[in-house]
Design a protein around this nucleic acid. Structure first.
Length: 426
RNA sequence: GCCCCGGUAGUGUAGUGGCCUAUCAUCCUGGCCUGUCGAGCCAGGGACUCGAGUUCAAAUCUCGGCCGGGGCGCCA
């Protein structure tokens, strides 16, 4: 007999079935007992009577919660059960006995702290609402791939072991690579740009990025998943348009393909384009609200909160001061801004991107101007010497996006096994 | 990197010098119960982060270690 899922039992009118899963809860009333069996599709009730089979009754009702069993029996339709169906087990096999006490309650009525949950993530993930975050994440990524593939992007994989810093600034994790020192890559930036000189024209990569920053906040991780794209023969507005399509399509996908995930999620309706305000305009909003801030300064959390108060949930801040953005951002018409943008969700930065510098001499100059060593960037600069088209791109933080959609307070909840300053296991 | 805060049963908490033999819920163990669905009832079990100090007396005050949380900066 083929094992069926709990949900299938409800949906198909079979007379007899075999199910398997974890014991969610046991309610023993003496002569009758109810065992709630959980699998990835939901919970199904097993109903046991003591009279006909005393031994099976005792065997199953004395098991510990979260033990794994497989059982076979008659399917009974009953209005007394929440889901309308129950199974009357005729035989059962205990596949794995769970030890007691559990370090974290799965069916308990008390919430655990995030740290306890992460320490026991395998148990934490047995909870439906926790797994829901990862079904959402998976679906959003699937949607991103589909949107990009439809627009003729190809999926690429660039090295995570690298020789030098991508952009300066953020700190890298060094390690020993044979006889030399190497680093974990902080971003596919330089490699995806190199690919623009090849004629692929449109590339994307969904992969890990590593940053050794000693920050300790609810929106930072030392290992995160970056959704990166780079597109040749395009400018910053072209890739902002693309980003809008990617995000909106993500929402549509959830709405259409997984309505069961919608509850409690922040999925805006009827959104097509996100407003694009310039850094200068954003700064004016903050100033008008009484914040003392000078043109050229980065927008502080306080400033961003003020700006978010005057904006819809999703909006772009464009044309940033050149001095506070990386060397590869294309300077604007004036000589103080650059063609870079951030996509904001309220006060949170979700994506940053730009049109890039594609002129070899200008790029060289900009690297040097930022005090970086030209020698370190030789492998990158080479690709600009022999025919490099104009191009633009962005990096969307997968966890940041999931966080905004699922309404998570802490980015760690958007990762199965998060890495932060204090956490290296599990 | 800077600044604030916390650590009490498996989980989550109450307790601000003596009323603590430490509260409550959940949990675990045993018992009763043939329709539970946050099952109920009865009995039992289980904890003050570590070290030093102050004091007649420390979960409670002081110092240090360890572990953790939050904010800012920076970023995705």
């Amino acid at each position: 007999m083929k094992r069926m899922y709990c949900r299938e039992i409800r949906e198909s009118y079979v007379q007899e079935a075999e199910v398997a899963g974890w014991i969610h809860d046991i309610r023993n009333l003496g002569g009758i007992a109810f065992i709630l069996l959980r699998d990835r599709t939901g919970i199904l009730q097993l109903t046991l009577l003591k009279k006909p089979n005393k031994e099976l009754f005792k065997h199953l009702t004395t098991l510990t919660r979260e033990s794994v069993i497989r059982t076979k029996g008659k399917v009974q339709r009953s209005e007394k059960v929440m889901n309308g169906f129950e199974i009357l087990p005729e035989s059962a096999e205990v596949l794995s006995v769970a030890a007691v006490p559990l370090p974290l309650g799965v069916a308990d009525k008390v919430e655990s702290e995030l740290d306890t949950r992460l320490d026991n993530r395998f148990l934490d993930l047995r909870k439906k609402e926790v797994r829901k975050i990862f079904y959402l994440r998976s679906l959003l990524l699937k949607s991103v791939r589909r949107t990009l593939e439809n627009e003729e992007f190809i999926e690429t994989h660039t090295p995570k072991i690298v020789a030098a810093a991508t952009e300066g600034g953020t700190e890298l994790f060094p390690f020993r690579y044979f006889e030399r020192e190497a680093y974990l890559n902080q971003s596919p930036q330089l490699y995806k740009q190199i690919l623009m000189s090849t004629g692929f024209d449109r590339v994307y990569e969904i992969g890990p990025a590593f940053r050794a920053e000693g920050h300790d906040t609810v929106r930072h991780l030392n290992e995160f998943t970056s959704i990166d794209i780079e597109m040749a023969f395009s400018n910053h507005h072209d890739v902002m348009d693309l980003l809008e399509r990617v995000i909106v399509e993500g929402y549509e996908t959830v709405r259409k393909e997984a309505p069961e995930l919608m509850e409690g999620m922040n999925i805006p309706e009827n959104v097509e384009a996100f407003p694009r305000i310039t850094y200068t305009e954003a700064l004016d909003i903050a100033k008008k609200k009484g914040l003392r801030i000078e043109w050229g300064e980065d927008l502080s959390m306080e400033a961003l909160r003020l700006i978010a108060g005057e904006s819809p949930d999703l909006y772009f801040i464009t044309d940033w001061p050149d001095a506070i953005k990386p060397f590869y951002a294309m300077p604007g018409e004036d000589d103080r801004t650059c063609r870079s943008f951030d996509l904001m969700y309220r006060e949170k930065e979700v994506t940053s991107g730009a049109q890039r510098v594609h002129d070899y001499e200008l790029l060289k100059k900009r690297i040097a101007d930022r005090g970086l060593d030209i020698e370190d960037f030789g492998f990158y600069l080479n690709a600009f010497k022999y025919g490099m088209p104009p191009h633009a791109g962005w990096g969307l933080g997968a966890e940041r996006w999931v966080m905004t959609v699922a309404g998570l307070e802490n980015i760690r909840e958007a990762v199965l096994f998060p890495r932060d300053m204090h956490r290296l296991v599990p």
